[in-house]
Design a protein around this nucleic acid. Structure first.
Ligand code: ZN
Ligand code: ZN
Ligand code: ZN
Ligand code: ZN
Lengths: 142, 142
DNA sequence: CCTTGAAGCTATAGTAGCTGTAGCTCTTAT
DNA sequence: ATAAGAGCTACAGCTACTATAGCTTCAAGG
């Protein structure tokens, strides 16, 4: 039996985060000690580790909910799990592409500034006027 | 004189977003019509365009607050503006590096899965056990 | 002048995923 | 018996908006 603090230490999650996961139904309500403190088993530890690891790989909580559900049913087809992972990969690739574009704009405006007063600042000029940008439209940052 | 809707159309911001910027002090309180509706001048339009453009380049609102302040004082040294932009560039580069690492892990786990049931799913195996990962620790996702 | 529909108003709650705080109580070791 | 440390609930706050409800104002057509 583990306390919530032990789970936190073993998984790297904050104590409040574990209670939050319980609140939103991602972690089950655990048993309680005589005094009302949470007591967890090894299965809870595994589940929390799964959640934290998935979060570190960027999966949103509702995707993790589905992944946990699949993981709880060992005889199902794994296609669903794979497609969630592929969706996450596409999401990561999209974000990277957007960031790459931002990076280029930032590098350019920083590189073009020759110092002086803010009235001559190339950085501020670009921010004032998007037509100074390379891209003709920036996608949403997300 | 422009209505809030005109500002929204001209800058791509939502009407509620403009009122939100006013509420947090990023946009000034504009004049009002006899009936109490907001009426903006061209300077407000420029300011909002500056804010939206900066947002599209990923600057957080408090950085934008500083940039606006610098932009409002044309005789200051532009070093401060440049260093805000450089900070933002570093932020973008960090995020990209983290995403690159995630991308590799996702690609690998997807590529290794040979289908079958969820008990054999390589994706779920990796999520269960971080030691299956390439990286020995994933940084925060942010 | 009157009507009508679009646009504006305030206030409030919700989004994602936590994190921090206040003011308690419980556990455990000495 | 006491005291430190950990746990408890409940709630506020974070970023940057977005959506809704229920109302009022504006501008154009008749
Ligand atoms: Zn400069
Ligand atoms: Zn631009
Ligand atoms: Zn699979
Ligand atoms: Zn891992």
């Amino acid at each position: 039996m583990h306390t919530i603090g032990t789970l936190a230490r073993r998984t790297g999650a904050k104590v409040q985060t574990i209670r939050y996961y319980e609140q939103i139904g991602l972690m089950p309500e655990p048993g309680r000690s005589a005094g009302g403190q949470r007591r967890y088993g090894d299965a809870d530890l595994d589940r929390l580790a799964f959640i934290r690891h998935s979060r570190q790989l960027g999966f949103p909580l509702d995707a993790i909910r589905e992944l946990l559900d699949l993981s709880d049913h060992p005889d199902r087809d794994c296609g669903a799990a794979d497609s969630i992972a592929r969706r996450q990969l596409r999401e990561v690739e999209n974000r990277m592409a957007r960031l790459e574009a931002l990076k280029r704009e930032l590098q350019r405006m920083i590189g073009e500034c020759r110092g002086g007063t803010t009235s001559d600042c190339r950085v501020l000029e670009v921010l004032r006027d998007h037509s100074e940008c390379l891209a003709d439209n920036h996608d949403d940052v997300g």
